[in-house]
Each structure stands twice: as C-alpha cells, then as structure tokens.
Design a binder for these strands. Structure first.
Length: 431
DNA sequence: TTGGGG
C-alpha cells in the first residue's frame, strides 16, 4: 500500500488543474494572497488562499481550507511563501477551478525567501512527507519568485487621494497604531489612512504586516466616519504578495520621494500647485501673522519632538464648537471661547480659540453679523447673496493657513495633557 | 457541510 502510494504520488502544475476535476491531487505553489481565518457556516473554520505557480500566475487558483479549529488553519507569515498541499480535491464553481482542503488533506508551509537547502516547514497540518521531487519544486519556485516579476493588473489600486467608499484594493505602506513612540514613526507627509480590523484578529495572523514596508490589500472596505476616511480589514480582505520591485510600488515610492523633496511637499495635495501663498488675496480666507515660514502637516505637529512649539499649517476647519455667531459673540465671561476641528490629509486635531486669539481671528468684536459671515467662510458654508445660508448645500471647508501652538495643561504628564490652540490667525477679506 | 473574485 505504501509502495503504491509512493508510485501514485504526483505533483500537479496549476495549469493542469482543469483536467483533474473531482480528483485528489498534490500541489506545491506560491501563496499569492491569503485572507484571515473565519468561522464557516458549517462546523469548521475556514481560510481562503490564492495560489500561483510559473504555469498559472495571472489570476491563480483559489484554495478553501477547512479545519476543525482555527489554530490548525494555515497561518501564512508572508504572501509569497510556499505551500505544499497533499490530498486536496479539485472542484469547479461558476466555471472556475478551485481547490478544497478537507480535514483528511495535509499541508506544510515554507518560507518563499530562503536558502535553497531550507526545507523545514514553519507550519504543518497532518503528516506530510517531503520527497526529492518536492524539494526540487520548492527550489524552483523560490528561484522563479526572485527572477520573475509577476505581471500585476495595473487597474484597481487607487492612490489614497483617489479612494471612493466601498470595497477596493490598496497598495500602501503600513504603520502602527497609537502610543506616541509609535505615532512618531508614521510618515508625516502624504495621505494617511487608518485601518481597523473588523474581526477578532490573532496577532500571529498579522505577522505579514510589517511596519514601514509596502503592502497590498485586496478587497478592503473604505468608508467615511465623521468625515474621516477609514479602511476596514474584514473577512473578505486579503493580503497580496508584493515586492519593492513591483511597478506599482516603484511608482509610489518615486512619487513620495519627489513629494518630500518639494518646497510645497508638506502642503495638502489639494492646494498644490496653487499653494496658499500664491492664492490671490480675494480667495484667501485667513492671514497668519508670520507668513512664509516652513509649513508643517498635522502629523508633523503630532509627532514633533517638543511638547510646546509653534507651527504654520494648511488645514480645513471641519467643525467648530460652538459655531453660532450669537453664542460666540456673547460667551460666558465676555471672551471668545471656541474649539475647532482641523484636518489635513495626514491627521485631525482639535484646537481651541480663546480670548485674545479669538479677537485676532475675528478682528476684535465686529458684531454678530460679521462674525457669522467670517465663520461661514472659515467653515465653507454657502450663503446666498443676501447672506441666507443654503441649508441643503453641502458644506465644503476651504484650505486655510493657521498658526497652531502646542502646550500642556498639566505638568504631571506633558504629553498626555498636550493641547493645541490657534493663534495669530485672522479671517480676512469678506467676499 | 462549510466557501467560492462579495
């Protein structure tokens, strides 16, 4: 029996899959994409992979892996790794061939980038014997992966500044979340998209996401929440193999380097090339006391090495609290007191406008009607000629220059109590 | 069984 099995053993090239429908086969191939583990609608857990080899690399072939518990599912450490599948079944679905891994199948995972002689799997399910021909196959796939650039469909990977709501693919660099030391390792120029994980994610399933390296997400959900863009990594999202030599990545890296080398590189893209400095006076909404100094992005502000500092930024004022002129003009205590929500493509912050800074912003106390018009300009509220606000007209906050000062409100923890205020900024030139 | 370029 064992002798017979050895004779029967054959590795299937992916191009021949269509001729073996309903057969059990053995495959060694490269993991082009992999999704997160999830509960199936039956009794098992499931994980979906897409495989390629040198005979079938344009779209590849889907594998549905089912195991009784989540820990047994393949936990791919990087797209581009190699999977050895034994006793998997070929099926068709809507005219496409796919592979099903049932519980009596077995798999082993090998690093895609490794020495020729490295045949130690980093994960295996069920006993799997590695024959000489399997080793040769692994070596040749590793070589192919290095020498060959997988032709990438150029469509469907928008830049962050082009994204629309819904499902999309993204090619972007990955950055970590929150604590200050990590926030400081973010890039501070360009469009920054926060990505959240909708599923309970196991840490070891995210090994493939490495800080500072390029990553391709397939089918990530993009949505706007309270005016900010988010990516949502969900059960349909996959990570796709990519390299620094991929032409999408080369192009994006080039654009990024070009951008940071520009004088205006830290200005939001929407304001370039007609930068705030060159806007004609009539279009300018604010004037900052010390113009013509270096511009900072809001991420620069957040990641600045000192708690207290002063920054000139180009932002949109997306909200104000309060925003009604009558509340601003008769505030408790007789001084201005307002909180603004400022946004640029890199981040969003809240900044206060209090007392004398408010007097600078509104040019003293010019009366309810003037304050109302100034606020409408700042917030991008559309008015009719007679000053009546067009209610159903979408608000579109313009890009404005502001001066932001950072400070702390409590000495016990400077960074935790770091706050921002807008100062030396004046709303100018009524329309 | 389940899921499958959603």
């Amino acid at each position: 029996m064992s002798r017979r099995r050895r004779i029967d053993y054959k590795l299937l090239l992916l191009r021949d899959a269509h001729s073996c429908i309903r057969h059990k086969v053995n495959i060694i191939a490269i993991v082009l994409e992999f999704g997160p583990p999830k509960k199936s609608n039956g009794t098992d857990f499931c994980c979906i992979l897409r495989l390629i080899d040198e005979t079938h690399y344009k779209s590849g072939i889907t594998v549905n892996v089912f195991t009784a518990n989540a820990d047994s599912l393949p936990c791919i450490s990087a797209a581009g790794d190699i999977i050895h599948l034994c006793g998997v079944t070929l099926n068709t679905h809507l005219g496409e061939v796919n592979v099903v891994f049932y519980k009596n199948s077995s798999f082993a995972l090998y690093k895609g980038k490794s020495d020729d002689g490295d045949f130690v799997p980093y994960q295996a399910y069920s006993k799997i014997f590695l024959r000489d021909e399997d080793k040769l196959r692994i070596v040749s796939l590793r070589k192919w992966l290095v020498d060959f650039h997988i032709p990438e469909d150029s469509s469907g990977f928008p830049m962050l500044k082009e994204i629309k709501e819904g499902h999309s693919n993204l090619a972007c660099k990955l950055e970590p979340t929150m604590p200050r030391d990590l926030v400081c390792s973010f890039p501070t120029v360009g469009s920054i998209l926060r990505i959240f994980f909708e599923l309970p994610t196991r840490k070891d399933h995210l090994h493939a996401l490495q800080v500072g390296t390029w990553v391709k997400f397939v089918n990530i959900r993009l949505s706007v929440c309270t005016g900010l863009w988010y990516g949502v990594f969900n059960s349909y999202t996959k990570l796709r193999y990519t390299t620094n030599e991929d032409r999408h990545i080369i192009e994006r890296q080039r654009l990024y380097e070009e951008r940071i080398s520009l004088q205006s590189g830290r200005m939001p893209f929407g304001t370039i090339p007609q930068s705030i400095d060159s806007l004609s006076e009539s279009l300018r909404i604010t004037k900052v006391h010390a113009d013509h100094v270096q511009h900072f992005t809001l991420m620069d502000v957040l990641t600045h090495s000192e708690v207290t500092a002063r920054f000139n930024c180009v932002v949109r004022v997306v909200a104000a609290m309060p925003y009604q002129a009558e509340k601003l003009c008769f505030p408790a205590g007789g001084v201005y007191r307002m909180k603004l929500t400022l946004e640029d493509p890199t981040a969003r912050i809240h900044a206060a406008v209090v007392g004398a800074d408010g007097e600078t912003l509104f040019d003293g106390y010019p009366g309810i009607e003037n304050v109302r018009r100034k606020m409408n300009r700042l917030l991008g509220v559309t008015e009719r000629g007679d000053g009546i606000v067009l209610k159903d007209y979408p608000r579109n906050p313009p890009w404005v220059s502001v001066c932001i000062i950072s400070f702390y409100s409590d000495k016990t923890n400077l960074w935790r109590y770091r706050k921002f205020r807008v100062c030396d900024t004046k709303i100018v030139g009524d329309p």
